[in-house]
Design a protein around this nucleic acid. Sequence first.
DNA 1: CGTTGACTTGAAATTTGTCAAGTTTAGTGG
DNA 2: CCACTAAACTTGACAAATTTCAAGTCAACG
Lengths: 259, 259
Amino acid sequence: MASTVLPLHPSQGSTCGKCPRNELCYARFLSYAKSVEQLDFQVSNRILHRGDHVFYSGQAFSALYMVRSGHVKTVMVTEDGEEQITGFSCPGDSLGADGLASGHYAVDAVALGTASICTLNFEHLLRNTARKEELQRLMLSMLSETILNNEELLLTLGKLDAQQRMATFLLKQSSAQQRNGCSPVSFTLPMSRADIGNHLNLAVETVSRLLTQFRQRGLIKFNRNDIEWLDIDTLTDLTNRREYATAAPLVTNNFLAHG
Amino acid sequence: MASTVLPLHPSQGSTCGKCPRNELCYARFLSYAKSVEQLDFQVSNRILHRGDHVFYSGQAFSALYMVRSGHVKTVMVTEDGEEQITGFSCPGDSLGADGLASGHYAVDAVALGTASICTLNFEHLLRNTARKEELQRLMLSMLSETILNNEELLLTLGKLDAQQRMATFLLKQSSAQQRNGCSPVSFTLPMSRADIGNHLNLAVETVSRLLTQFRQRGLIKFNRNDIEWLDIDTLTDLTNRREYATAAPLVTNNFLAHG
DNA sequence: CGTTGACTTGAAATTTGTCAAGTTTAGTGG
DNA sequence: CCACTAAACTTGACAAATTTCAAGTCAACG
C-alpha cells in the first residue's frame, strides 16, 4: 500500500552509454539517430516496488522517465474518482510527456511490481539538446510514439468487441516481450485481471470469461498470470475478422452441439 | 468527394509574426515562450475544402501542421476498413505529430469544411530550433498537448455513459469556441451526427436521441447543426454526476426503496 | 418538385455489465 | 507446517444500456 516518489536507490549522473540495457531504449528511436554515442542522456535511476508512484497526477512536471525494467501503469482519474488505465509501459517505454504542456503530470504512473526507472531531468535535457539535433529528434520521437500508442488504443476500444480487444491486448503484450528479447509465447502478465478490464473497458468478469474461452479453444495456455503459450496466428485472425453469423440459435459455438 | 493533398493557395515563406491570427496558435503554448517574437516559424499556407486531406494515413512524414481556420477530423482505419475518428481539430490545434516516430502519418486528416492550414516543414523546423530553446519547448509542448487530449478522450470514452459523453463533447466544442474568441453558447457544429457518433463510440441514433433529449430538457437550443444556446452549468453537472434513478422501475440503487 | 442524404423516432435484439456466490491462491501468524 | 484470512479470480443467472433494424421526416439542391 505504501507509495513513494522518493528515489530509493538513486544513482546520480550515470550516462546511458554505460547502461547495459541501453539498446532497449535506443532501439525504438534509432531511426532518427545516426549513432548511439550521440544519444548519451544523463540520467539518474531508482528502484520502485509494487504500488510505488513514478509520479502523481497533478504533480509539477520536471522530468521525463524511461522504464528500464519492470512494468508501470498510467492511470487517469475522473472528478468523481473513477480510474482509467490509459496504458501499460514496459522496458524502453517513456513516461511523463503528458505533463510537459501544462506543467503538471496528467496521470498517475504506478509500478506494477519491482521496476527500475530512469529520470531525464527536463531542463537539463533541453540544455543538452539545444545543440544536438539528434537528441532533439529522439525527444520528439519519444512523444510521437506515445501519441501513436494512444491513437491505436482509441481505435481498439472504439471499433473492436470484447473478444477482439482481449486478443489485441494479448498480442500487444506478446510483441512487447519479443521486442525486449524475451519469448513472445511464454511470459508473465504483470497486471491483474482488474487492470486489464479497466484498460480495455471491460468488466473483470468479461476478461476472465474470455481468457477461459480462449483456453478452451486452444488459443492460449496459462496458469494464473503465467502465459505458457499462445497461438499468435489465430489470435491475430480474431483481431481482424468479425465473427460472422451471431444470429439465430447458432450462438457462439453450436457446432459442438451438432457434432 | 474529390480530395487533394496539393496546396491550392500556397504562400511560401510567410512568417507567423505577420499572421493576423498568430495569437491563436501562440496562446496555447506561450507558457514556454518568453516572447512571441522568438516563435517566428516559417510556414506555408494552403486552403482546403470539405473532404480534402491535410495528409493521408501511411504517407511519408515531412511536416507538422497547424489549423489556422476551419475544422479538421483525424481518422484512423482498422485493417478491415472501419474508421475511428480520434479527434476534431480547430484553429490553433496542431496535426501530424503521430507520424514523426515512424516516419509515416498514422491517421487521415480531413477538412470538415473550408479550412486554412499552415505547414511547418519538419527538417526546416529542426534546423531552426536547434539553436532556439524557446522553439524547442514550443514543439514539445505541441506534442504534449496532443498526448493530453488523447488521454482525456480515453477517460471520457472509458468511464462515461452515452449522456455524459455527449455533454462532455458539447462542452468541449463550446470551450474551443470560446478559446478562439467566439461565443461559447452560440456556434455551429462543423461535423455531422455520424462523425460525432463515431468519435464518441455511439450509434448515430443515440447521438440524435441525446440531442433531442437535451433540447427537451432545456439544456440546449439548436437548429440542425447551429447551436443557439447551451446551459453550460447544467451540462457540466451532467458530465460529473451519474444520473440517479432514470426511470420508474428504479433498479440499481435499493437504498431509495428503503428510505 | 423530385431526389438524395442527413437526421429523427420507435421497437426489438444483443452484447456486456451487474449481482451473487463459489473457488483458488498467496500471505500471515501461531 | 498448518490454519486462517484476504485478495484475486471464476462462473452462472439476470439486467440494462446501447445497438440494430425499420420507417419516416426534413431540408438542401439540381
